[in-house]
């Protein structure tokens, strides 16, 4: 049932990439438990604008858990205290009346803060650009049914491909590692015959780019998998290791 709750919010504020940040504390009264977390942020921002202050900058777009734009580290967890959801799908009924909520940006050397809660996730694009594709140009491709693909492989590829590129894996990882993200893409394409053709090259270049960008090393804690809003499995990381090692040994 719908309730109204009052909250204390400790929010990270930072004016720009090079500025020093700090926590600011805000009070918010009568927030409907039916509202989403980001709608709660909207209410807070409306309150700030109406009092002439700058609203809190945070990333968000589709608000239905698929674009991967929203982030936020809420009370010690990326995407907050609910499981298998993004922040935009998190609802206030997960919080108690009078609770203090700490809201921080993703923290990782690979994701520098741009402003307040917004971080720069451009590194993910760079990793994809390094090889996260099949090298086919538009036109001149065979008929879609020319190559049968076992349903299990297609389904497994789909599970890996469901990654939304939000970066929660990096945010959750004590090592700031991007292995779950990279492995999801390498797995998605390595599982399909279309992607297998250049699987070795792909694994090598994507890992090299990931390392170059300063992401940490995977120590298999599995925190990424727990916090992934799309439940991408770390068995993809084993596959990435396999693909990479195979590729390197063939050199």
């Amino acid at each position: 049932m719908e309730n109204n709750i009052s909250l204390t919010l400790k929010v990270w504020r930072q004016n720009g990439p090079t500025e020093k940040g700090r926590f600011e504390t805000y009070k918010l009264e009568k927030v409907s438990t039916d509202s989403s977390f980001l709608e709660m942020m909207d209410i807070l921002n409306e309150q700030l604008v109406n009092s002439g202050q700058e609203p809190i900058a945070f990333d968000h777009d589709c608000r239905e858990g698929i674009c991967g734009m929203c982030s936020l580290y809420i009370n010690g967890r990326p995407h907050g205290p609910d499981d298998d959801v993004t922040t935009c799908q998190l609802h206030m009924r997960k919080f108690k009346d009078g609770e203090t909520i700490t809201i921080e940006p993703w923290r990782s050397a690979g994701f520098p803060v741009i402003k307040d809660l917004i971080v720069n996730r451009n590194a993910f694009d760079q990793i994809i650009a390094a090889g996260g594709y099949t090298s086919v140009s538009t036109g001149g491709v065979p008929d879609a049914n020319a190559l049968p693909i076992p349903k299990d492989d297609a389904d497994e590829a789909m599970d890996a491909a469901s990654c939304i590129g939000c970066g929660a894996c990096v945010a959750a990882c004590k090592n700031g590692s991007a292995m779950l993200f990279v492995s999801a893409k390498v797995s998605h394409l390595a599982l399909l015959p279309q992607g297998k053709v250049e699987a070795a090259r792909r694994a090598k270049s994507m890992v090299a780019k990931m390392d170059e960008l300063g992401f940490g090393n995977c120590t298999n804690t599995g925190a990424c998998e727990v916090e992934c809003p799309k439940s991408v499995s770390i068995s993809n990381i084993a596959r990435l290791n396999r693909e990479f090692l195979k590729a390197k040994f063939q050199d």
């Binding site: 594709y133 036109g139 491709v141 349903k151 389904d155 394409l189 279309q194």
Partner: peptide, 22 residues
């Protein structure tokens, strides 16, 4: 029809039947 061919070549994991076809 070209779109479907193109997307499959790119590795879009469309749903398939047990026979391996789309």
């Amino acid at each position: 029809n070209d779109i479907i061919d193109q997307c499959v070549a790119q590795g879009v994991p469309f749903a398939r039947e047990y026979g391996g076809l789309l």
